[in-house]
Amino acid sequence: MLLPVSFYQEPEHQASDPAAPEGPTRSEHHPMTETAVASADAGLSLKELARRNGLSASGRLPSLPEYTRQLWAYRHFIGAHASAKMTSALGNTKLGAVWQVLTPIINAAVYYVIFGVVLKAHGNMPNFIAYLCVGVFVFQFTQSVVQTGQNTIVGNLGLIRALHFPRASLPLSAALVEIRNFVVALVVLMGIVLVTGEPLTLEWLLVLPALLLQSVFNTGLGLFMARYGAKNRDIRQLIPFIMRFWLYGSAVLYPVTKFADVLSGWQLQVVEANPMLVFIELMRHALIEGAPLANSPTVLWIQAAIWALTVGVGGYVYFWRGEKGYGRG
């Protein structure tokens, strides 16, 4: 017999479901059932058969080092996906890539008009435009990562269901896009800061480690948001409120010294440990001469490193543990 013999239903199932309307079909095929059972390692249960042939139930979680190795093997995909996302996102606008520069400038202009000119929130600070712009730009970086991060799994279900690849590739590529966008925005920001009269000093080199730490922090946050957003789609409705609250709590729009005026003790410490405040402060310290800081630069660097490590590693582990659940259900 050349044709592979088919395997009919298991006897247990037939017994457990006698009401099933399959009488005539079954009796016709019954002889074949017996040959199939006899041919496939006679008498073995299906579970046993699967085990003997090294078949695994789908859904085994790879170990963390194994997962990291897989991700590394997919680095070309991550890069290609990021650049593809970038071209396709602005592909149908007239100005195209100009928006990458224009968006942060408009953003800073809006806040400047309201908080700098109308409300005068600066309390006689010498270079408020530069101070405000640094805050807006740095905050925008994290905000976009949170917003795109929660959508990386939900928005790519088609790709996830069609192909098997380490799912962390998607939030990582999204983070890569945002890092690239921020580097462009950073160049614009430096231009603004120079135009407003800040001198170009060696301290500007501190931008690089600050950028690195915030990128690690953001990537972890993006990974976290990707898994959280995939399981709890309702969070999407809440993110605008959370981000606005975070924005107002991070001394973006007013001098950081205002916290010390109204808070003290542990309350002040909690507010000043806010990671966004820390990253914004570091960037201000690097770019603006004599910018008022909440803490000494050393304390800020330590806080930033702790935040980056905790959130970076934590977000990665959190995402990895959910690896097998993405795209299911």
């Binding site: 789908s58 071209t87 396709s88 269901r161 098997h164």
Partner: peptide, 27 residues
């Protein structure tokens, strides 16, 4: 891609599903 509520499905390697609605990037 879908969890099994009862019973089990075992497979060799990683089965790949190819469907008409598997979207790539339309832009």
């Amino acid at each position: 891609l879908l969890p099994v509520s009862r019973g089990a499905i075992y497979a060799a390697g990683q089965p790949s599903l190819l469907g008409v609605n598997a979207a790539l990037m339309n832009e």
